[in-house]
Amino acid sequence: MTANIELTERGLYCPQGDFYIDPWRPVPRAVVTHAHADHLTSGCGRYLVSRAGDRVTQARLGPNANRVQTAVYGETVTINGVRVSLHPAGHILGSAQVRIETGDGFVSVVTGDYKTEPDATCTPFELVRCNLFVTESTFGLPIYRWRPQAQIFSEINAWWRANADEGKPSMLFGYALGKAQRLLAGLDATIGPILTHGAVERMTRAYRESGVSLPDTHYAGSTDKTMWGRAMIVAPPSARGSTWLRKFGNVGTAFASGWMQIRGARRQRSVDRGFTLSDHVDWPGLLDVITATGAETVYVTHGYTSVVARWLNEHGRQAFVVETLFAGEREDSPDNLADYADEGAE
């Protein structure tokens, strides 16, 4: 048995199947884990994505949307004799791990981004056993250990309630695709009206069209002052400091992200509150998943690659760093990441 994927200039490639996984330049055939900009490149000849992610992918791709083929989770699609199937990654709606099985029985799994904690807006992570596991490592340091989301959501709602009681709008920043909808699902809509920024609104529509149930929201642009006092406004990080934000007057501001675990990262953003809520796996989750896959070889990508690879090597597993085009910018810089889903903001 030999490894059935390799790293090329355009991304991870399966030579036998002649397709790429999350290529960062246009290729004839792409299998895409999820619709975030650093995984979904426009201009490819054909795309394979999960059925659950169809709507959000189309919303992101625009004119390229007609080239998208979908598969339900677990369905096997044969590409040039290679058996390919998509399995829930639990990161955002439609996010998938790509399982690739070649004739000799060798199985690779490419995770894209994933988390093991449940998420009301997407199918939970499914463990897939494999020989070669390609894992993300965005939060691959032991300082990243998430508290249960129920606690975080109750803190968010308490913060909102306190602001609303003072007649002050609450502005909660989260990535427009995925984080924003997960936040919406966790909000207590009895506190006040929920408003959305344009970029969030478009993605939320795609979620609703995909059958995800979310509390009622109002597009912020079509509301007036009378609604704002008790409102929760969900906006992308790029809206911070914008003129758009200023029209709401004195607002309480908060940022929901895994990076908020670190005090410096939180204070740097000059928001009132930082809520540590991540759509990525934390350190203990990462190690547990890697062990459970049974993989003999691990490729570590997207994040603290060298740290995780070194740890694995010191713990008897063969691990390699796989640099992606985005690694240089993403690894150390939460801020590039923070805004990756924000194009098209008002």
Binding site: L141, P142, I143, I262, R263, G264, Y304, V307, R310, W311
Partner: peptide
């Protein structure tokens, strides 16, 4: 070394 990496991030 891992403590060092964590310190570097924090």
């Amino acid at each position: 070394w891992l403590f060092g990496e964590c310190y570097d991030a924090v």
